[in-house]
Design a binder for these strands. Sequence first.
DNA 1: CAGAACCATGTACGGTGTAAAGGGTTTGTT
DNA 2: AACAAACCCTTTACACCGTACATGGTTCTG
Lengths: 254, 254
Amino acid sequence: MTEEIGGRGDPVKVLELLWGRAESGKRGPKARVGLADLVAAAVAIADAEGLSAVSTRRVAEAVGISPMSFYTHVPGKAELLDLMMDAVAVGEPDDPSPPSDTDWRIRMTFVAETLWRHYLRHPWVLDLATHRPVLGPNTVAAYEFALSAVDGLGLTEIEMDMTVTVLANFVHGAVRDAARGRMVDEVTGMSDEEWWRRIEPFLETLDYTPYPVASRVGPVAGETYGVGDPQRAFRFGLDRLLDGLALFIEGKRR
Amino acid sequence: MTEEIGGRGDPVKVLELLWGRAESGKRGPKARVGLADLVAAAVAIADAEGLSAVSTRRVAEAVGISPMSFYTHVPGKAELLDLMMDAVAVGEPDDPSPPSDTDWRIRMTFVAETLWRHYLRHPWVLDLATHRPVLGPNTVAAYEFALSAVDGLGLTEIEMDMTVTVLANFVHGAVRDAARGRMVDEVTGMSDEEWWRRIEPFLETLDYTPYPVASRVGPVAGETYGVGDPQRAFRFGLDRLLDGLALFIEGKRR
DNA sequence: CAGAACCATGTACGGTGTAAAGGGTTTGTT
DNA sequence: AACAAACCCTTTACACCGTACATGGTTCTG
């Protein structure tokens, strides 16, 4: 149970680590493990057991060094978290290849779906992606990938960035809801269905007259989110967002 | 440095606390402090020093009880966090009053701006709002408030919920970027401007040929976000999103 | 007035991140 | 060849965290 804050620590130090500029010394004994091993181990732990299972001692043990040897390779935990985020901010081997389509809408849809898959594969990123961006090579590559989808449409640089940011933020929020229904909470060991089932008797005892609209919408939405397809909300929001962007882009083109 | 996870603990227990159903006993001595005192103290600490400063010991001390007496009032920290979220999910006295406008667009804009202010006032909510919803009275009231803006437009219940969710997710993401520039990071004590200034020399040493689009857009966007007005991205995204929703709503109306 | 019920507390345990100091091993310099 | 610098790794220790457990007061009920 540790609040994990990305984007901390000495910002230059972490950049040097991200871009491989921290040349390891020539003098002493060779390191038995590399930085990449530590990061990979930490990612594996986070993927399997959630972010709260990632501790410096645990990561050190996973790669076979003593707890404090961790600090030989990484300045601290904050930097490790940044490195983890950048490490997974890259496509997986089984990802579909991007469409070389001329329709920006198809390209942006693909960007959104790629982000969607990314977050579902590494849900712990959702807990970390609340602070400063990690300007590592993979993160920048992902940024480039997203920007390419809106390049050449007549948008200014700022408009391009804002467009991509809005899309990324939307996916972030949508996948948060989806991850809820899909995963079993590794801490409570309670599935989303059980959660709804547990609280439902209590909810029925409440007086909903102060909430007329919510009491009409809530149960329907709750049922849908509880057992339904969260991908539906994703598609709905994505379509609305792209509709709005289309108006803007076509307005600029003329 | 503690990961704070909202929406945990016994879900019914926390609901009882949220809705005031946990009747305090009649027998023993009267409690010197109430649940609301603990929650208020915790919120004050989080507002002032960030979420990582909120510990059970610290909260207990703030209200003048011993560390373990905390658990007389709250089952555990997870429940406290839920209570904190719901406690702030209500308007402040100096909030502008909602427009009684017939234009849903004006109403939704107001909803978005209210959310925006909410997150800026309590940025720590961003760190907590990643898990299950807290179905407390204030949270439900906020949900009702948002839903009212899209009521009577001919949308189905599910569509209403998805619309509100998309809007909330967008604001969440946009304010995350804004909070970055506005606040001084309470942990590093480094402002956003200083952060950019520190990393800029390093960024100039990188080879950007693999990132042609990002290298064109990034510096412009970085400068804008670094010293510019993040509210601009908020307005841009909000306008695009509302444009897209307008298409859908007007399509359904006919 | 007895006892149940309740609030509050002290102690203790296992966990966290990491500061500080020291031992071993390799390499560059003389 | 000898030495010192540089580096990896380790041990010990500290302050903090959430909270289980046992105990001691206080107040209301029967």
